[in-house]
């Protein structure tokens, strides 16, 4: 996929879940459909309050790797962090 317009990242940031434009959906199919090796997940530290970013190895039984100590206090904030990281992986560009 060619590097998309950054306005689509803004669209995601405004509303990470719900109705998306077809262009944003194409990006999300790519991002969310990735295989399990290296897949980002959120590790819940406190229900409804605190999450950290984790990554799977793709091998059953391997502990979930904690990617950083950063604690997210909203799921939306964490979704945006994962989106930015995936954007960098797929399109080589830093958002923000």
């Amino acid at each position: 996929m060619e590097k998309p317009d950054r306005s689509l990242a803004e669209e995601f940031r405004r509303q990470p879940i719900g109705h998306h434009s077809p262009e944003l959906e194409r990006i999300l199919f790519l991002f969310r459909g990735q295989g399990m090796a290296g897949k980002f997940v959120l590790v819940e530290d406190e229900p409804f309050r605190k999450w950290r970013l984790g990554q799977l190895s793709g091998r059953r039984g391997d502990p979930v790797k904690i990617v950083s100590d950063r604690v997210f206090e909203s799921v939306e904030e964490a979704e945006w962090e994962v989106f930015k990281r995936r954007w960098k992986i797929h399109f080589g560009e830093d958002l923000e």
């Binding site: 295989g35 959120l42 590790v43």
Partner: peptide
């Protein structure tokens, strides 16, 4: 933790609680 389509189905990054991590490991 096993199915690549999980995050496509939910349009969300999966959240793993203590019990999820336990049964995975």
């Amino acid at each position: 933790t096993d199915a690549p389509l999980a995050q496509l189905l939910t349009d969300q990054v999966s959240i793993l609680g203590r019990n999820d991590r336990f049964v995975h490991e």
